[in-house]
């Protein structure tokens, strides 16, 4: 069994309401970078709730790390379109928030305070935020806030990082910068990524595998492996091979929207 495994999963939010997602089966290998694309309202965020254990499936089974998901797991980190940093905490304190909740950090955080603080500083330095540790979130630009938010998602060394349109609210230049940041983070320390996005170029540039979902009720329509060689530079986005991938995905999305 792979690291993340969906077996014919459906989810209804209301007891006898419509399915938000329907009969989804997919599997994600440990260390794989997966993107999920689809029209808005197709249940991409529902997928995240199922994997993180915030919602149990109505039908089918969700397995993470060889075990059926029965509730929140400490091995998951999440970041969303809104950075959601706490305005009363400095950037460093924001990044260290998960350590106040997840074991083994929680019970040892008084004894190992200096060590954990150094971990957070290193993590911030890795995304280019060295020197911003003591700034408050409102003193950071949108792109910097999103970097800090991703640091917070990674600080407890999760094995699975889940991103829900994390770059959706950023301008095009900042977005491409953050693609490269995420690529580098993923290549430095191995973890599995599930990236929900509506940006096809983003999905193709970053992912090993792209899944296309249908309109509500969300189903997996297309699974496409992106065989572009790694490490990928931004130049790859101007190649024909890259465009071909984007083109194919765009057509399948177009069919979804028309149907």
């Amino acid at each position: 069994m792979e690291f993340v495994e969906f077996e014919n999963v459906s989810l209804r939010y209301a007891e006898d309401g419509p399915n938000a997602i329907e009969n989804v089966s997919l599997s994600v290998k440990e260390g794989e970078f997966v993107s999920v694309v689809g029209p808005s309202g197709c249940g991409k965020s529902t997928l995240m709730k199922l994997i993180s254990g915030l919602k149990p499936p109505s039908d089918g089974y969700v397995y993470v790390n060889g075990r059926q998901v029965g509730g929140p797991l400490g091995i998951v980190g999440m970041a969303f379109q809104a950075a959601n940093l706490l305005p009363w905490r400095t950037t460093l304190e924001n990044v260290m928030l998960p350590m106040e909740i997840v074991e083994p950090y929680r019970s040892t955080r008084k004894a190992k305070r200096a060590e954990y603080e150094q971990m957070a500083r290193d993590q911030l330095a890795r995304v280019g935020l060295a020197g911003c540790e003591d700034k408050f979130p409102w003193e950071l630009s949108g792109g910097m806030q999103q970097r800090a938010s991703i640091c917070r998602a990674l600080i407890h060394k999760p094995r699975l990082l889940m991103l829900d349109e994390p770059f959706g609210a950023l301008d095009a230049f900042t977005r491409e910068e953050l693609w490269c940041m995420l690529r580098d983070l993923w290549q430095q320390q191995p973890f599995t990524v599930i990236l929900v996005t509506h940006d096809l170029r983003e999905a193709v540039f970053l992912a090993d595998t792209v899944y296309v979902m249908s309109k509500r009720p969300g189903r997996i329509l297309v699974r496409r492996e992106i065989d572009l060689p790694r490490p990928r530079d931004l130049e790859v986005t101007y190649t024909d091979a890259f465009s071909a991938h984007v083109q194919v995905l765009r057509e399948s999305i177009g069919r979804v929207r028309e149907s």
Partner: peptide
């Protein structure tokens, strides 16, 4: 924000 924290347990 609640989801971020709840997913951490």
């Amino acid at each position: 924000l609640e989801d971020v924290l709840r997913s951490l347990g």
